[in-house]
Design a protein around this nucleic acid. Structure first.
Lengths: 121, 121
DNA sequence: CGGCTCGTACGATAGGCATCGTAGTACGGG
DNA sequence: CCCGTACTACGATGCCTATCGTACGAGCCG
């Protein structure tokens, strides 16, 4: 506070609001994953075990829509997002989810993989 | 047609359309369970390991809305419904779901139970 | 038959949401 | 300093859905 006109140092105003671990609701997680696009994002994020930029994903929608989906995932507590230069990094909140709902994420991922095999190949 | 005036024997025209096992989609299941009301229904259905009538559930909505939620669950392949007299019985499609997505249902139920304890107790 | 209970069908309503396009902001590099 | 890249914000649109109320159909019971 005080007289600092440029309120924050670097990447100011670029923090993204995330729900705390205890604020994550199962219904919101399920809703977030009930969209094919978002489920696909989460699957890729789980496969690569690292953070990925938004632009890494080649989604069949405009960037506006893409932004929307990533926000839904973040607000549901499924992914953690932060800026790194101009890029926005996305990481799965594995630890938080595993702590809240042990085994759920793995079951969901394996269910999605199984369905992909069944329908796609 | 034919001579039979009462077209069908009993509970005629009262069959309910269900998706076949192979038509059940993960996204639809997750969407169905992302509603608190429907998640509660499924939890009760899993607790009592028997079929339950619609009226057994004391939901804070009108009967119209209740009918709607049960239909969503049925069309997603989560529950199987049939008539028994005037009552409509609801049963969890455990076998189908376990075959398609092994472990998923249990993970979901346990996640829901865990959250109920965490928030309610 | 008459009435009761259970559930359905249909229409209305209000809110949510997936999608787009356009205009704009933040950062890094030449 | 200017430009390109990455992402956002905002408004519009059309669809889906959760909810209700009312009117109705189907089966049971006296």
């Amino acid at each position: 506070m005080g007289g600092v006109s440029t309120t924050a140092p670097a990447t100011a105003g670029r923090d993204l609001p995330h729900p705390a671990r205890t604020e994550i609701r199962l219904e919101a997680v399920l809703h977030a994953l009930s969209d094919p696009m978002r489920l696909q994002i989460v699957r890729e994020l789980a496969a690569e075990r690292d953070e990925l930029t938004c632009s890494h994903f080649d989604l069949p929608v405009t960037k506006s829509t893409s932004t929307h989906h990533f926000r839904v995932l973040r607000e549901a507590g499924v992914v953690r997002q932060c800026y790194r230069g101009t890029a926005k990094m996305n990481g799965l909140r594995r630890e938080d989810l595993d702590d809240l709902f042990p085994g759920l994420l793995d079951s969901l991922l394996s269910a999605a993989a199984r369905q992909a095999v069944r329908l796609g190949g």
